[in-house]
Every structure is written in C-alpha cells, then in structure tokens.
C-alpha cells in the first residue's frame, strides 16, 4: 500500500515532474523573479514591440487601422525605396561620409595611442589624455555650436585669422565639398582621444619581456613599434575594424542634423535624417520603416562578411 503511490509517482511523465520543479523554483526565488518583472516589462514594451512593429515595412500602415488592421503589401515598399531619388541621395551621403570617416577616423586613434604610449612623463601623459577625452563627453549640438563659432563665414574665428594673414576665407560649413570634409574631420577630432583607450589597454597587455629582448637584439624605438606593439594590438585593430565596417550603413541623426544646414542639404542628408523628414514629418510610415529595415539588414550582412573575412585571414573574429 505504501509503495504503490511512490511507484506511481515516478512512473508519471517527466513533464509533470519538471512542472512541479518549475513551480518550486518560482516559489523559492519569487523575489528574484519579482525584481526581473520591471526590466522585462520595460524591455518588452519599448524594445520588443518596436521590433515587432517592423512588420509595417510589409504593410500599408494607416494610423487609424493600426499595426494589425493595415493591409499587407508584400515588398512594395522596398521596391519603392529603389525608385526614390531622395533615398539614393541619403544612401550616397551616408556611404560617402562613413567611408571617409573610416578612412581618416579609424587609423587616427591607433597612431595616437602608440604616440601616447611613448610618452614616459606620467603627468604630461595624464593631462593630455584628459584633454583628448573631453570632446567625447559633449553633445553633437555643443560641438556643432562650437564648430559654427570657429568656421562660419565672416564671424568664425578661423576665417578671421585667415583674413588677418591675408588669405581668402574658406567656406568650411557652407559649401558642399568643404562641408563633407569638415564633417569628417570634426568627427575625427571628437572621437580620436576616446578611441585610444581600447588600444592603450591592449598595448598594456603586451608582455614586457618582448620589449626587453628586442632591446637586447638591438631594435630601436621604431623597430619595437613595428615588430612588437603593432602585432600585439593586431586583434584589437581587427575587432574595431569589423565593428566600424558594420556601421558603414549606420548614421548618426544627431551628428548630421546638428552639423548640417540648409545650404549643404544636398550632401548632409543621411539615412537617419531622411527617415525623420520622410517618416515623422511627411508621415510615410511604412516606406520609411522599410528604409530603416533595409539599412539594418545591410549593416548586419556587412558585419557577418567582415567577420568571415577576418577569420579567413587568420585573425580572431568578433562573433
């Protein structure tokens, strides 16, 4: 009599058993689960709902009909993207600006980190690092504000100085080509200091004995940089490069929006600002959602490709 129910219990299906276990865990750790409820709800509503909202890229979204009620249109919105001139302009500008950013902005922190690493006077190093990190902490609005104070025609400091030494003014922010380079160089200026942190940390982790033996072998300073420091931070460089390549389709709304002005509209409209004006301002919701989805899909593919390439050439990948 006593053993029978026991046998019966163990014979019961395993799922029943684990369900009781699950309730047991909930009961034991209910306080932990309670804590988790708050962030889970917030993340669900404000991060996952918008992800689900991406379906309107395949619909003809009407505010009154809502997400579910709006009609399916398949890939019509995507087809429309590629016949839209403004989109092409935004895409072209995004790729041009990001390409130049990568070209000029990517090597700068590496060079700077190596130079900072060569400074042996500790206080001088500290002061310079503090100053170099500063622009990272300021908003694009402030940076743009300062940029206009410096580079504006007539009243900008740099143009005043140029005039004072008898040179002609340069339309840094008011002529298309000049604006593109100003945009890129301001970006390099803003991020070069901050970008060194990761490389400096990477340099610190290089085995110091390598430098000692190189010294004994007669390597000079340049030799040590060339044969020890650079190979030592190679994997970090690769990872940062992969991350940057993945971002080549991305665009910072704030940077383009605050540095741009109506005169240079032709070159300053990037995907994010285009989505804002065509989506939020002109209310083409489905179309601009498709643009955003296209942008992130291409970005993802780019990350995967560059990761694959870096694994092929023998570096460690990111993923």
């Amino acid at each position: 009599m006593k053993t029978k129910p026991m046998v019966h219990k163990t014979m019961k299906t395993k799922s029943n058993n684990s369900r009781r276990n699950f309730m047991y865990y909930i009961k034991r750790d209910w306080q932990l689960y309670l804590l988790l409820v708050f962030p889970i709800v917030i993340v669900l509503v404000f991060k996952y709902f918008p992800m689900a909202g991406l379906i309107i890229a395949f619909k003809d979204y009407k505010i009154l009909k809502g997400f579910v009620g709006s009609e399916w249109v398949g890939f019509k919105n995507f087809a429309e993207i590629f016949s839209n001139k403004d989109f092409y302009r935004a895409l072209r500008n995004t790729l041009t600006l990001n390409g130049l950013d990568l070209l000029l902005g990517f090597p700068m922190p590496i060079i700077l980190a190596i130079m900072i690493n060569e400074i042996r006077t500790l206080w001088y190093k500290k002061i310079n690092q503090t100053l170099l990190y500063l622009p990272h902490f300021l908003s694009w609005v402030i940076i743009a504000g300062v940029a206009y104070q410096l580079f504006q025609p007539r009243t900008g400091l740099v143009n005043i100085l140029l005039r004072n030494v008898g040179l002609e003014e340069i339309p840094f922010l008011t002529e298309n080509t000049h604006w593109v380079f100003s945009y890129v160089l301001i970006g390099v200026w803003q991020s070069m200091g901050w970008g060194t942190i990761i490389y400096l940390a990477s340099i610190t982790s290089i085995n110091p004995e390598l430098y000692d033996s190189a010294t004994i072998d007669g390597a000079g300073r340049w030799g040590k940089i060339r044969y020890i420091t650079l190979p030592g931070i190679r994997s970090t460089i690769t990872i940062i490069l992969i991350i940057n390549l993945g971002r080549i389709m991305g665009s910072s709304f704030e940077r383009a929006h605050s540095l741009g002005n109506p005169i240079v509209k032709e070159v300053s409209s990037v995907i994010a600002t285009y989505v804002y004006s065509a989506g939020i301002q002109a209310q083409k919701y489905s179309f601009t959602t498709a643009v955003g989805l296209f942008q992130s899909a291409v970005g993802l593919v780019l990350v995967l490709i560059s990761d694959w390439i870096s694994k092929k050439i023998g570096d460690e990948g990111l993923l």
């Binding site: 918008p50 992800m51 909202g53 991406l54 309107i56 997400f67 955003g292």
Partner: peptide, 9 residues
C-alpha cells in the same frame, strides 16, 4: 525597431 516603429509606439 528603428526610428519609425519607436515613434509609432
């Protein structure tokens, strides 16, 4: 989700 789905939410 991106700019527009966030906005619509």
């Amino acid at each position: 989700g991106g700019i527009i789905p966030d906005y619509l939410l």
